[in-house]
Every structure is written in C-alpha cells, then in structure tokens.
C-alpha cells in the first residue's frame, strides 16, 4: 500500500506546563486509506505517547473524535488523508475551553442536552406494560433524521452564535428537543417550548446554517431550529387569540 508523508501540526496544551496552547509538528507516514485518527494513533504509539485526544469506535458513531481539521470541525475518523493536502492542522474544537491538547471541556453542552428534557413525557396514563405504541412509518420519518445525532459537538464548534454567547442553547440540544417534539409518542412539547421560547432558545439562532454544513450525520439542526421557530410563533399566536394551545 502506498505511503504518503503528512506533516501534522497539532495543538498542544498542558495546563501544568504551558501558559497557552502551541503547535507541535509530527511527520507521519500515512497509508493511503488512513483517516486522520489513524495518523493521530500513529503519533501516540510511535512518536509521542503524551498526546491527549478522545476516540473510541473508529466508525463514526461514538462521537468522541470531533476536532478542527484545517479549520473545519470534523470527525477525525471520518476525515481521510486522501482528501487532504500534505500539511494538516489539528486543533481542539473551537468555542470550547481546552482541557488538555485536543481534549475540550464539554460540561456546558452536556448541561444543555439535559436542559431540553430529551425524553418521552406522557400526560395520559402510562401505556400498558407489554403493549407497544403504534407509530406509522410516516410518523417515524418526521423525526428519524434528528435521532442520528452522535453528540460530536462539531455543530457547536461551527456556530457563531454559540461562540459569541454561551447562553445560547445551541444546535444539537435544540435539534434533540425538536426530535422529541415531533415524536408521536411524546406529550411534552408544550413544556419544552416554554423552556425554549425564552431568549436563550431558538430565537438566538440567526440561521447561518454553519451547524448543518459541518454535521457529519446530516442531522440538519439549522432546519430543526427554523421549524421550532415556526412552532413557537404558532403557539404564541394561538395563545394570543385565545385558541386552545398545543395539548401535546
């Protein structure tokens, strides 16, 4: 198999040693079918065992390995050497504090995922223990794409709104809220709209669409947020006009 020499420029930061992050160069002989993650693993195994980064599945599903590759938020296991120039810059995800090297602090977004109540809320009596809900394929289709989110947080790294204002709930968490709102089994939409209608919710988003462009799973959070804006506006007018609100 062909070997190609890649110059990796990796951001390093050890809070116990470094005042601020800096770049370290590694020259990595890459096989042609390698992803950037394979190159990082090569560094870790052969060149420098002190490099810190997160990864696990190497199959684009665990969401651990989001980093900036040449300025773009990407999964390193899904970004291939064959598609990149000879010089590749790897940095931790933008818009997040750096814990160490390529590892960022995720507390804030984990909190936000929690905040939107991402679980089925039932107002009716609980369903019978051994009976499933029926859900047509069409009803599943409505939210299926939104369930694909792997929480890689690339969208947060791309979102200018989140960069400017950390109170903004942000793309993945809003998409997650919308996923449950659209689920025919859920009855918690009104609760969630209440959380989201205030200023840190959907209205902060200026629909730049950067989040959707970088999402490795095509979740399209920007579209979800727009749909929620329409939902929110409808709910507002329904209440103004004294119409019964969305019960579910």
């Amino acid at each position: 198999m062909n070997i190609r020499q890649i110059e990796l420029e990796v951001m390093r930061y050890d809070p116990e040693k470094d005042e601020a992050p800096w770049f370290q160069q590694y020259s990595v002989p890459c096989q042609e079918d390698w992803a950037i993650l394979d190159a990082l693993n090569y560094v870790k195994d052969e060149l420098d065992t002190t490099l810190a980064y997160r990864w696990s599945c190497h199959m684009m599903v665990c969401g651990s390995c989001g980093m900036m590759i040449n300025g773009e938020p990407s999964l390193t296991c899904k970004t291939f050497v064959r598609d990149l120039p000879d010089k590749v810059r790897v940095e931790p995800l933008e818009n997040f504090p750096i814990e160490r090297d390529l590892v960022v602090v995720l507390d804030d977004v984990m909190q936000k995922l929690h905040q939107v109540q991402p679980y089925i809320v039932r107002k009716d009596a609980p369903p019978q223990e051994d009976k499933e809900f029926t859900q047509s394929r069409g009803a599943l289709m409505k939210f299926k794409q939104l369930t694909m989110c792997i929480n890689c947080m690339c969208c947060y790294a791309a979102c200018p709104q989140y960069g400017l204002d950390k109170n903004f709930i942000g793309p993945a968490a809003l998409a997650l809220a919308h996923r449950y709102n659209l689920d025919s089994r859920d009855q918690g939409k009104s609760d969630r709209l209440d959380i989201l209608a205030d200023h840190d919710g959907v209205w902060e988003c200026s629909f730049v669409g950067a989040c959707s462009e970088v999402c490795p799973k095509h979740v399209d959070p920007a579209a979800a947020i727009q749909q929620m804006k329409i939902d929110g506006a409808m709910e507002f007018w329904k209440q103004k006009l004294g119409m019964p609100g969305d019960k579910s």
Partner: peptide
C-alpha cells in the same frame, strides 16, 4: 424491548405501525 419502545427508541416499523 417494549419498555424501550415506550422510552422513545426509534424502532423500525412495519406497514401497520407495529415494530
């Protein structure tokens, strides 16, 4: 598995809407 369905697992469905 039904319990998971109640918790929102997006199981694939048959024509009649059952899992």
């Amino acid at each position: 598995l039904v319990q998971l369905e109640h918790w929102g697992c997006p199981w694939s469905r048959d024509d009649d809407g059952s899992v």
